[in-house]
Design a protein around this nucleic acid. Sequence first.
RNA 1: GCCCUGGUAGCUCAGCCUGGAUAGAGCAUUAGCCUUCUAAGCUAAGGGUCGCAGGUUCAAAUCCUGUCCGGGGCGCCA
Length: 560
Amino acid sequence: MKEIIFQILKKAGITLKEEELEKLLEIPPSSELGDYSFPCFILSKKEKKAPDKIAEHLAQKIKLPIEIEKVENKGPYLNFFVNKKILAEKVIGINANFGKLPLGKNKKIVIDFSAPNVGKPMHIGHIRSTILGDSLMRIYNFLGYNSIGVNYLGDIGLHLGKLIVAYELWLDKDALKKNPVQELLRLYVKFCAKEKSKITEGVEEEFQDNEWTNRAKEKLKLLELGDKKTEKIWHDIRKSSEKGFNKVYEMLNVDFTETVGQSEFSEHGKKIITNALMNKIAKSEKDGAIYVEVDGQKKFILRSNQTASYITYDIGAAVERNKKYNFEKMIYVTDFRQKDHFDKLFKILTLLGYDFSDKLIHLGFGTIKFGNEIIATRKGDIILLEDVLNKTIEKAEKEIKKRKTKGDAEKVGVGAVKYIVLKSSPSADVQFSWEQALNFEGDSGPYIQYSYARASSIIRKAGKFNKSKINFDNLNSHEINLVKKISSFPEIVQKAEESLNPSLIANYSFELAQLFNEFYHACPVIGDESEAFRLRLVDAFRTTLKNSLYLLGIEVMEEM
RNA sequence: GCCCUGGUAGCUCAGCCUGGAUAGAGCAUUAGCCUUCUAAGCUAAGGGUCGCAGGUUCAAAUCCUGUCCGGGGCGCCA
């Protein structure tokens, strides 16, 4: 539609380039003023005339194609009114593929997300990477890319040393079987409590020298050395832990292409670093620690005791993934605090001679806050992700019972949580509160799902589409608003992909649902003289909303 | 100290990239609407120095500079 207006303006003798026109063309604050607007200020200098005179002149001069029904000058603005009949006709003709584009044919996008730490439970803070990453995968797939979701488990590190110690001392086997997450958390918290009394304040964990921390370090070393007994415990912890993760992923309906422990990249990472040392790209400190210089600073990539550190694994993993997938892009979805780490990682890869680091992107997201607290596993006073989901599902059950309808409580509850996470843009912090999570009214997941169910109800009751001839004359404002909103869906999806921002789709879904509810309230469908058109409009709305929510990983129901 | 973020209604946020017409939602508050396709809905009202100060511009919530307040990063941790 924009292109059509550009053509009109060009024909009217405006010599601006298309990109400039693209920037200038805007949508008026009120639809009564028009659907698109061209401000004429910019021309007033060139033509040395007042902008409102220019607008007036242009309005008279312009010849309109069929897609535009009228043009008006209003002050300095030239306002275009699109032909609603043609737009409406297009909209009711959409199908389930609406919004899909073959942009990413044969292109692979690797998305590294979720990445929980083995042994620790998933809490409300982990939800963001998981849900964001899942949504990005869906968006890329929708646009024809082949997206590959990688769950990069934190299966190594001091917290595992601590857990192994605790496991040997206090494990309750039955409890582990019954509720692995709860038992592992109990062990971890118990260890931290013991350790805490011995900790020297202000000293970093690495340099703590006390009975408890040292025991954990000892276990970690045994693990690296391949001690059988320690390894067995480690495997057991990982297995139990994954059981817990999988339960959550099942509830969230999140799938990964591969799940892999970061420890698996230790050897490869070290090999790369050894080569770099030989090629003098990396240098060695006297004590054996290896570093490269990045931005004039030493960045260590192997520890003095020759064990791998975080970045060692990441180097190995990145190189291996590039080889395995030959990706177009790889996106790391993590907390924004890791920004520097990833910036350095990308630079180091370039220094090491790899040419794919410009394909790597770090999508950093803000913190989830609960009240004013930031959640820490250490203390154990955390809100488990599972509990959050269970609580919203419970609330949904209650609501469904109250209404005596057939809704699916899990879909409603999970949808509510996903929507809260996705509706704010990734970079922003998210305020999480029970009040908000359990409020299913207004700007919420259930509100949107509800509007879908209402639409479905109409279609169901109508039975068949009314076959009488559709009359596109006399569309009312509710119908037009809905038509316009539906027609803008493809743009929104593309924008969300370009900016890696599913919140655009979340906001769109809400606005779309809102317009539908207004329409629903004002326009009877069944039995009305516009039934033929309205039924199809309702159906187009359903299709669009379903696609839109699909991209957020939120499921719809025919009834709720 | 250096770097990254954020500051818009009582609360939670959108708009900022790409400057344009009276700054938008939701929650909460108040007042209405269920004999009509699901009231998880709709309608209406109140509520704003867009942190502050300069600058650029015909035009600034939006761009630039400075400043104040909050969050974060600057480990051989992950």
